[in-house]
Design a protein around this nucleic acid. Structure first.
Length: 753
DNA sequence: GTCGTTGCGTTTTTT
DNA sequence: ACGCAACGAC
């Protein structure tokens, strides 16, 4: 009976068994965080403390929720139903459907996707006559989202926060945007949380109901919670006269989402909010070898203000290969080297799916993809555009939404002229006018303008066909329930017919572009997915909350993904390319976030290294092609922070570095070819130290005329160790790394070259 | 109303 | 270099 507890180490066991009162579990990478969470869940149920429906378990991704559900079921040795287990958004949507009327919605409200949100915001901004050039709608959308992330409804926006955008009109636009959402009976993603928090704040009766309901709360990835999620948790957890049975699991060292509103501070203030909280640290790592752990620990130790965990090897067999650092000439050579190493591992019977190339930014994947194609190695880019984000899928879903809910104006606007039906600005204006003046949905406005003869010619004919197709579909859907018992889910056929009759399928069949057949396949795939649901409405709820991509799972492929995308995953072999100043740490993060930004980049590096079970290969290139031109780069400072004794440094490019800044890029590939990297004898120990960082500051004097790849020509106005202040002719005063600039030869300043 | 040209920006991403 | 979005010409 208690065997599941015996499989835990003492810390894990403490985290699982401390059921009364608040618990914060600080779980380092690979220390069994998920195991603790799922076992705790099972333990609550098996010890009879609560029934499945009385536990609230929250995750960030659907994947994590699914995994937890499976593992809990496995521990209980039966599938569990009626759980409140899901993502923040899915759980909030579920709650909001029960109390929608408190925020002016009905329980059948629609959830908007990002396209819809932006289209709606643009409309509101147009009404305010905001110049979209000067104040780009996506910017304001972002601001609104951040407000929502912080729990700020329009009435809570202070004037000082408002002035930033659109000349002080942002608050008003936000308010109008919310107003329009309410009219449309719609909520965007942020609203799911914002509305429910508003309800819990203002309706003590509703809050009390949930307090009675949820006896235990479990939270995964707590370091990633933003303010509104924190508020939601706190409201639900803090009960009058009872201990808060909330257990949050997180790792401050893996907080990498501050740029989208996550507040690590939520971890730090846990003890303040929940007095008497028990803190359990999990530090035994069962995933990685000792050198990998040492490298990761040494690196993260450079951060300040940590809660201070140390990872120690949890297994006896944890010795292993050193972490490699490779210096290469350019990004092409880097891809070649990684490819070779992958082939080598493959020859040694390692599975491709146990290898991952983790990059800082999306554009880096291309070089590796190309290399994999040349070598004939199967690969998958994880987290590219997801299935439900593809144009044809969104269009098809918009068709379904309109059929399901004729008042869904945003979905209607998306498809009204797809395929082209001759509906342009003029016709749209007329439809908007009619809809607004009569206070009717757009589809009703179309019927009206068709009836009164305002619409003529081709538009009239085409829109007539569209409305007929939608009408037929809707009728068939209404009858579907009778028929369903006999013929299986008929909504599948209804949707098929709709996409045919509306000319949507024909549009892609006519399309001669190479990706049209693929899009038709995707549409078939979408229709197939419908079978899993009893009703069209159920399916639509699913797609708006669960945007994921399960394609070609299971096949043996090399994984290529961003470091962010890799969080929570693990692989035997991990490749970490592009560890160069400017790219990783990213220049932009440094510019915007200063030292805090740097620390987050360092955490990202920590996440990267700790993904590896057996081996990690870090690399940096002296030259990288960014957009059109080549840029020379210096190794990331993060590379220098790796502890020496656990790594090995290899590379041909070290000596080449001096050359790199002045040599024409065409040299690059030739040079790389002459020094096959992996064939070189590794230099150990002392080689860990960076090959003397090219210190140009000494070489470039104040007053020197220089050239910078991005900013053009300029004059140096100041210098300190590796940074230069340069007054550029076109771009103005910038602070740049000395290695990014070239002295201009033959100018009056006479810098040595 | 549609098609072609110009111009800007280009980290990370879930739901 | 490239892709997308907005604008102007047919």
């Amino acid at each position: 009976m208690d065997t599941y507890l015996e499989r835990l180490n003492p810390e894990q066991r403490e985290a699982v068994e401390s059921l009364d009162g608040p618990v914060l579990v600080l779980a380092g990478a690979g220390t069994g965080k998920t195991r603790v969470l799922t076992t705790r869940f099972a333990h609550i149920l098996l010890s009879g403390r609560a029934s499945p429906g009385q536990v609230l378990a929250v995750t960030f991704t659907n994947k994590a929720a699914r995994e937890m559900r499976e593992r809990v079921g496995h521990l209980l040795q039966r599938p569990v139903e009626g759980l409140w287990l899901g993502t923040f958004h899915a759980l909030c949507a579920r709650m909001l459907r029960r109390h929608a009327e408190y925020v002016g919605l009905t329980s059948s409200f629609t959830i908007l996707d990002t396209d819809d949100q932006l289209r709606l915001l643009k409309q509101v901004m147009e009404l305010h006559r905001i110049d979209a050039k000067r104040w780009p709608p996506p910017g304001l959308m972002g601001a609104i989202q951040r407000w929502k992330d912080r729990g700020l409804t329009p009435d809570r926006i202070t004037p000082s926060e408002d002035t930033d955008f659109a000349g002080g009109k942002a608050r008003q636009i936000y308010a109008d945007y919310q107003e329009r959402l309410a009219q449309l009976n719609a909520a965007d993603f942020g609203d799911l949380m914002l509305h429910i928090v508003e309800i819990l704040r203002t309706r003590p009766d509703v809050l009390a109901q949930y307090h009675r309901f949820f006896r235990y709360i479990l939270v995964d990835e707590y370091q990633d919670t933003n303010t509104i999620q924190y508020l939601w948790l706190r409201l639900l957890a803090k009960r009058e006269g009872a201990a808060a049975n909330i257990c949050c699991v997180g790792d401050d060292d893996q907080s990498i989402y501050s740029w989208r509103g996550a507040e690590v501070e939520n971890i730090l203030r846990f003890e303040k909010d929940f007095p008497g909280a028990k803190i359990v640290k999990l530090e035994s790592n069962y995933r990685s070898t000792a050198p990998i752990l040492a490298a990761a620990s040494g690196l993260i130790a450079h951060n300040e203000g940590r809660l201070g965990k140390t990872l120690r090897p949890g297994r006896n067999d944890a010795e292993g290969e050193k972490v490699l650092v490779a210096s290469v000439w350019d990004s092409d050579e880097e891809a070649r080297m990684v490819g070779e190493r992958i082939e080598q591992l493959q020859r040694d019977d390692h599975r491709l799916s146990e290898m991952a190339i983790l990059v800082r930014a999306g554009f880096q994947t291309r070089a590796f993809e190309e290399r994999m194609i040349t070598l004939g190695l199967p690969y998958k880019v994880v987290g590219g555009l997801r299935f439900y984000e593809r144009q044809e899928i969104r269009d098809a879903i918009a068709y379904m939404r309109v059929m399901n809910q004729p008042s869904d104006d945003l979905a209607f606007e998306r498809i009204v002229n797809v395929p082209r039906r001759g509906v342009g600005d003029v016709a749209m204006q007329a439809l908007h006018m009619a809809a607004r003046s009569e206070r009717i949905p757009m589809t009703a406005a179309v019927l009206k303008l068709l009836a009164d003869g305002t619409l003529k010619g081709r538009v009239r004919e085409q829109l007539g066909l569209l409305m007929t197709a939608l009408g037929h579909g809707r009728e068939a859907l209404a009858q579907a329930s009778d028929e369903a018992l006999l013929a299986g889910p008929s909504h599948v056929r209804v949707v098929e017919a709709l996409l045919e009759d509306a000319g949507y399928v024909a549009m892609w069949k006519k399309d001669k572009s190479p990706d049209a057949p693929g899009r038709l396949d995707n549409l078939k795939e979408l229709v197939r997915a419908l079978v899993e649901f009893d009703t069209l409405g159920g399916f639509l709820e699913h797609v708006s909350l669960v945007m994921e991509n399960d394609e070609n799972a299971g096949a043996d492929r090399v994984n290529i993904m961003t470091l962010h995308g890799a969080k929570g995953l693990e692989f035997d072999s991990v490749f970490l390319p592009g560890w160069e100043e400017g790219l990783f740490p990213s220049q932009r993060t440094l510019d915007e976030g200063g030292n805090k930004g740097l620390e987050e980049e360092r955490r990202l590096a920590y996440v990267g290294i700790t993904r590896a079970r057996k081996r990690a290969l870090i690399s940096h290139a002296a030259n990288r092609r960014i957009y059109a031109n080549w840029q020379s780069s210096v190794p990331s400072r993060v590379v220098e922070e790796l502890p020496e004794e656990h790594g090995e440094h290899r590379g041909a490019a070290a000596g080449a570095r001096e050359l790199s800044r002045s040599a024409p890029p065409v040299f690059g590939s030739q040079f790389g070819g002459q020094f096959p990297l992996m064939a070189r004898r590794p230099r150990t120990a002392e080689a860990w130290e960076q090959p003397a960082r090219p210190s140009r500051a000494g070489g470039i004097a104040v007053g020197a005329r220089v050239f910078h790849q991005k900013f053009g020509y300029g004059v140096v106005t100041g210098a300190d160790d590796s940074k230069l202040d340069v007054e550029f002719d076109k771009a103005g005063l910038k602070r740049v790394l000395d290695s990014y600039v070239e002295p201009v030869i033959g100018s009056d300043s006479g810098a040595p070259s």
